[in-house]
Design a protein around this nucleic acid. Structure first.
Lengths: 156, 156
DNA sequence: CAAAGGTAGTTGACGATTGAACCTCTGAGG
DNA sequence: CCTCAGAGGTTCAATCGTCAACTACCTTTG
């Protein structure tokens, strides 16, 4: 009923790794998100946007740059930035060089939110992921998902 | 304003790995979910539930077992199973040994959906993740997230 | 410089997830 | 047995993400 060629199933070690990945990432993201919300009042995606903005020399980025940097849809970025604007962490401005464009600008309040949220968040990333692995294993994680990200980067 | 001890920031290699992980998982889950929906009409969480049920000798599992196995909330499992029931892939039954309990039972239709979905899904997992990594690197991924999953397993 | 097609972004409706409130049932202690 | 703390599930409301229009602008082409 299936086909004559053997399906390319995962062997049991690959299977175990894949399941561990699914379970680990599910729990990790849930935990990071909840700690950020409880301690700083922002979600993980909101935090990531503030980080990107803070890393820009001008403290501002185009909506599309945020979207591609985070691998989120444009629509999602619109909504997330709207929430951040509602709490005063970012402001929207028309882009001076492109009449279609909008830039999101980090406010002083937004920078303050980030300064207060970052240490605890980084600690959590260490406690629940980075420091539970050997440096070599964590570097391998970087290589694997770097390859995945690049492969799935800009298609379709 | 922060504190006198230096914050435990990530070094630039760890930072790069963490970002690659975020971007890679975001794109990976989006892709796997969309391919499943397009080709088989079910979402990734729905697929995972069918897999768990199919692996049970009796083809049935308690709702709570599904929840802890997937690291999903009970509420989420209730909703997901309801969707699967609506398309005829699963049936709900009262648990004979525990009056509070409910078991989800894989139907023949559900098994058929799974049989048709699985090869393509496994191919996708290989194409976008497993086979882009060396076997050693993918084993490292398993170790890292296994440790994370265990650490975040049954707290709170 | 007009038309056409593509890019940037928003909007609104809908579907999925969360969290808390709520019932029911179980199991342990007195 | 009776009580009562707690587990198993569901439900409702609120929040978040997705998808399909839709507007506005840019850019290429002839």
């Amino acid at each position: 009923m299936m086909d004559t060629k053997t399906a390319r199933w995962l062997d049991s070690e690959q299977q175990a790794s894949w399941r561990a990945f699914l379970s680990g990432t599910t729990r990790l993201f849930e935990r990071l998100d909840r700690e950020l919300r409880d301690r700083s009042g922002i979600s993980l995606p909101e935090y990531e946007i503030l980080v990107r903005l803070s890393e820009s020399p001008s403290g501002q980025l185009r909506m599309a740059e945020l979207a591609s940097s985070l691998a989120h849809s444009r629509s999602r970025v619109t909504h997330t930035v709207a929430r951040l604007e509602a709490i005063g962490a970012v402001r929207r401005r028309a882009c001076p060089t492109d009449g279609r464009g909008v830039v999101a600008l980090l406010t002083d309040e937004g920078r303050q939110v980030l300064v207060e949220a970052a240490p605890g968040h980084v600690d959590a990333v260490r406690d629940y992921l980075v420091d539970v692995a050997s440096p070599e294993d964590f570097a391998a994680v970087g290589r694997v998902f770097g390859a995945t990200a690049q492969l799935l980067g800009d298609d379709r």
